[in-house]
Design a protein around this nucleic acid. Structure first.
Lengths: 217, 217
DNA sequence: ATAAATTATTAGGCATGCCTAATTTTATAT
DNA sequence: ATATAAAATTAGGCATGCCTAATAATTTAT
């Protein structure tokens, strides 16, 4: 079994890999984990010894198959717990991440699968990120951004990409939450902003940034 | 916030206190936590410094109000998670304890209360132990043992006190699970055994030990 | 190409929380 | 009361995982 810290490193390396960084360096990892590069070098050595990563000063860190498997399991648990916290316990978007960071390290062979079943095998977490399946497969098709919906089209809010307090307060003010039906009335070419209708309510204008921050399904 | 280890010590001291041991000694704690008395002495010093316990060689360890509060919170979380694992995720009695030992250390202000609400404010965990309420109050009325039901009486299985594989396999063989209705036909004075009817099925004879291992509500 | 800046690494340290072995204290038995 | 056993404590050590400061290697800019 791996320690919390090891799992956090694997997850960080995994995420950096997804971001397509050519080289995953100690500095980049330290930044993501909010710790010191010197500490990272120590840990990379340890993860190398355990064959969870390969590390080379030139090439940076790379997850081995074993390391990738572990990282995906952690990500799977993280996202499943996020769904649980939001849907079952009623937490807000902004609160679930920190708790899921703790829950993702709970060790039990069947836990992820049982949780997955209990939650109805969700495909995406509340931030719109795909939940790895039990076999390790991950959907590559992200949900589409509100911005990509054609004028005249209608959709439902599925997730948010931005979890800042400002954005969430704004959403609340507008009466927008998960499941809210949105109709795209018009796209303004000038600044990329959108005119949308919230439910059966008012037509409002929202910025391009807003349109990029909401995922719909 | 306290470390996992600190919380485990507080919980151990709390449990030893409930068992009514006159003196809670390093040796007793070491035994409960399956570690070394020397390690315990170290930790008792640390917990004393943090005003979570008082420790005196003569009087042993005692939780302060602050320590008691923390211990009860941990116990509350432990038992709520046990209910969750059994009722929602479908784990068996024997599996939930180890996972709850991990989950009890998840830190979040609202978590216990939200979980409590989600589970419908259960009063007892699947082992029949009372779940401390949000205000720290703990029911003193334990569920009654099957053995205490009068002949002619009927009841439903609420929890089990024994979680050995042998017992649980026996229960399964008999078709007894949580919620199973049991009718007490007769008590045998000779050996304290019971004749019971399982559901609408057969009348069977079970030992005194069996009657003590099942709690009914 | 060389200086300056950035990044990686090493060395030494520290807190946590455990260990073993040795010692002191306390309790028990004769 | 004294020997013996048991419990508590101290001392020293170890692994984990973090830190700072110093140094080495690499990049970037001029």
């Amino acid at each position: 079994m791996h320690t919390f810290s090891e799992e956090n490193y694997l997850r960080a390396i995994y995420r950096l890999g997804l971001e397509g960084s050519a080289k995953i360096s100690p500095t980049a990892i330290a930044e993501m984990l909010d710790n010191n590069p010197a500490s990272v070098v120590d840990m990379l050595k340890k993860l190398s010894d355990k064959k969870l990563i390969s590390y080379d000063k030139k090439k940076g860190a790379k997850l081995t198959d074993k390391g990738t498997k572990t990282a995906i399991e952690v990500v799977r648990k993280h996202r499943l717990w996020e769904v649980f916290l939001l849907e079952k316990l009623g937490y807000g978007w902004e609160e679930i991440h920190d708790i899921a960071e703790q829950l993702e390290h709970i060790h039990n062979k069947e836990l992820a699968d049982r949780l997955d079943k209990f939650l109805g095998y969700p495909d995406y977490d509340p931030h719109g990120d795909p939940i790895p399946k039990a076999n390790g497969k991950i959907a590559t098709t992200y949900k589409t951004m509100l911005l990509e919906v054609e004028p005249g089209g209608s959709c439902q809010v599925a997730a948010v990409k931005d979890t800042s307090v400002e954005f969430l307060q704004y959403l609340e003010k507008l009466g927008v939450g998960i499941g809210t039906r949105l109709k795209i009335i018009e796209k303004i070419a000038f600044d990329g902003s959108l005119t949308i209708q919230v439910g059966k309510g008012d037509k409002i204008n929202v910025s391009k940034k807003f349109g990029e921050s909401i995922l719909v399904g």
